[in-house]
Design a protein around this nucleic acid. Structure first.
Lengths: 234, 234
DNA sequence: CTCTTTTAAACTGTCGACAGTCGGCAGTCG
DNA sequence: CGACTGCCGACTGTCGACAGTTTAAAAGAG
C-alpha cells in the first residue's frame, strides 16, 4: 500500500523519507493512534509504511529529541506518557521562554512585527470562529512562534519548537475542555496591547495571565477526563 | 538462579556505539580538530573509527540536535560555525533559563540542594586552583546543571543541556581569556548567598551579574582573538 | 495448581551493499 | 575567449541481513 499521499501538492521535491515517517509518527501520537506508553516496533512500522528500518529509526530518534518518544536501550521506542507533573513542567518552561521573549520583543517592537502579529491574531480569530480543533491549535501556536521569532533570538525559538510538540500533544488530548474560542482571541489582543505599550511589566503580566489560563484549562481537562495512568512506573 | 548483570555503572561496559561516536565527534569539535564549516564525511569517519556508517549517522544527527553540527540535505554534515550574534543568543537564552531556575530554586531551597551546591562550589574552587581548562569548565557547568536540577523542572534542565554543548564550545574556544579562577569562584559564592536569602530579586541580580561576566569575557575573547569568519555564507 | 526452569520467538544494534543525486571537470560551440 | 553541455567520481539515502539480547511462552518440578 502507498504509505503517504504520494503527490505532495505541486512541489517538485519530495521530502526525505525520514521526515515523512516523522510526520506520520507525530500525527499518530497526537491523534492517539499510538497510545501513551505503547511500544513502537521498528519492523512493524517498516512493514506498515513500506520502507526500510533505517528511516524509521532516524525518524524515531527525531521524535525522541522532540520529547514525543522515549527510547530505552535494547528495548526500543515508547510513546511518551505525560503525567500531571510533567504537564506542569511543560507550561512552566513555556512561561519561562515566553516571558523572556515578550520582554525582549517589547524593546524592539518594530512595525513589521506588530503587523505580523496583528494579522496572525486575525487569522486566529477566523480559525476559531469557523474551523474545529486542529487548525485552531495550529494558528494559536503559530502566533506564539511569531512572537518568539520577532524577539530576535533564533535559539529561543528553537527551544520553543522543542516544546511545541509536547504542548500540542497536551492541548490536543483534552481539546474538549478548551475555553471558548472568543476568550482565547481576547486574550491574544491583550498581549498585543501590552506589546504596544512597550512596558516590560505589562507584558509580563499579560503573558503570565495568558499562559496561566491555558495551563489551568489543560489541568482542569486532565482532572475531568480522569487520567488513565496506564504507562505507570519504571 | 541467573545472576544479574554486574555493576550497572561498570566502566568496562561499552556504551552504545552511537554514544561513543557522539563523544568522539563532540571532543573533535570542541578541540577544534574539526574546523568550523568543515564538512564531515560519513565514510571517512566510519573508516577512521572502524565502525559502520549507521552509528556515525545517528551520532551526527544527535550532534545536530545539540547544535554542534548542521546538515544540508544531500550534502552531509558540517561543523557549526558560531558568529558573534549567535554567541549573544546563546548567552541570552542561558540567562533566560537560569533566571527562571534560580527564582524557582529560591522558593524551594531544601537543605539537600544547598549542600549539593555548596559541595560543588568547593569542587569548583579546587579544580580552578589546580587543574587547567577542561575540568574547570566542566565543574562550572556541573554547578549550573545542579542548580537547574534542583529547580525541580526536568525540562528546564533538558533545555539547558541542549545549550550546554554550544556553551562549552564558546568557552573552550577562548579559554585563554577566562577570568582569574578565583573571580569565578567568588561569583558562585554570591549565587549561594542570594539563594540562602531566598529573595527572588537578589537571586535575579546575582545570576544576571554572574552570566553577564561570563558573556563579557567570551565576547572580549572573540574580539581579541580576531574572529576568522571563514565559515561565512551559504 | 503454583512456581521455577527452559526454550523459542521477536526485537534491536550493527553491518555491508546498491542506486540516485550532486559537484566538478573536460570538451565543444558561439 | 567565455559559456554551455555531457560525463565522472564521490557521497548520501535507503535497503536487506546477521548476531546478541530481551521478552514471553511452554515445559517441568514441588
Amino acid at each position: 500500500m502507498a504509505l503517504l499521499p504520494m503527490a505532495p501538492q505541486g512541489l517538485i521535491q519530495q521530502k526525505n523519507l525520514v521526515e515523512q515517517v516523522a510526520d506520520f509518527l507525530t500525527q499518530g501520537v497526537i491523534e492517539q493512534r499510538f497510545m501513551p506508553g505503547e511500544r513502537l516496533s521498528e519492523v512493524q512500522l517498516s512493514k506498515d509504511l513500506g520502507v526500510s528500518r533505517a528511516p524509521v529509526r532516524e525518524a524515531a530518534r527525531l521524535l525522541e529529541s522532540r520529547g514525543l518518544l522515549v527510547s530505552r536501550p535494547r528495548r526500543g521506542f515508547f510513546v511518551k506518557a505525560l503525567d500531571a507533573v510533567e504537564l506542569q513542567d511543560v507550561f512552566d518552561l513555556r512561561l519561562c521562554l515566553e516571558r523572556h521573549a515578550i520582554e525582549r520583543l517589547a524593546q524592539r517592537y518594530t512595525p513589521e512585527a506588530r503587523l505580523a502579529l496583528e494579522r496572525q491574531v486575525d487569522v486566529l480569530c477566523e480559525a476559531a470562529a469557523s474551523d474545529s480543533g486542529t487548525r485552531r491549535i495550529e494558528e494559536d501556536l503559530q502566533f506564539h512562534r511569531l512572537m518568539l521569532h520577532y524577539a530576535g533570538n533564533e535559539r529561543l525559538l528553537r527551544a520553543f519548537e522543542g516544546l511545541a510538540h509536547e504542548l500540542r500533544l497536551c492541548i490536543t488530548l483534552i481539546t474538549r475542555t478548551h475555553e471558548a474560542p472568543e476568550t482565547i482571541a481576547t486574550s491574544h489582543y491583550q498581549l498585543l496591547e501590552a506589546l504596544a505599550s512597550q512596558s516590560g511589566p505589562a507584558c509580563r503580566e499579560a503573558i503570565d495571565y495568558h499562559i496561566g489560563v491555558a495551563r489551568d484549562s489543560v489541568v482542569r481537562g486532565i482532572n475531568e477526563a480522569g487520567v488513565q495512568e496506564e504507562g505507570g512506573a519504571r
